[in-house]
């Protein structure tokens, strides 16, 4: 149990989140992936705070508040999209021409 292990785990969680973000099409699934990323950051903060000191825990308190606000807005947007299209796939949004 040391800093290296914790950070490796945090990195892993973060990258799994990135993978989900890039590959999932369901909006809710994307939100879940975002949660993974935020959680990974929090874990890294706490680990650093434990092994090296510093304001890590404080940071996490704020990060939690931010996350909660993001979830609220994100879910509201998902529901809005769902009401509009009866479909929560994300890429309808990008009727991209380039």
């Amino acid at each position: 149990m040391n800093l290296t292990h914790c950070l490796l785990l945090a990195s892993f969680l973060f990258c799994v989140g990135v993978y989900g973000l890039l590959t999932r099409r369901q909006a809710v699934a994307v939100l879940l992936a975002l949660e993974l990323m935020m959680n990974a950051a929090n874990l890294a903060f706490v680990a650093f705070a434990h092994f090296r000191g510093g304001p890590g825990q404080l940071f996490v308190v704020f990060a939690l508040a931010i996350t909660v606000a993001e979830v609220a807005i994100g879910l509201a947007l998902v529901m809005l999209l769902y009401r509009r299209h009866d479909d929560t796939a994300l890429d309808r949004a990008s009727e991209t021409q380039g």
Partner: peptide, 11 residues
Amino acid sequence: MIFGVMVTRRH
């Protein structure tokens, strides 16, 4: 999240 899944899930 569960709530969100449930509401948007029908489809």
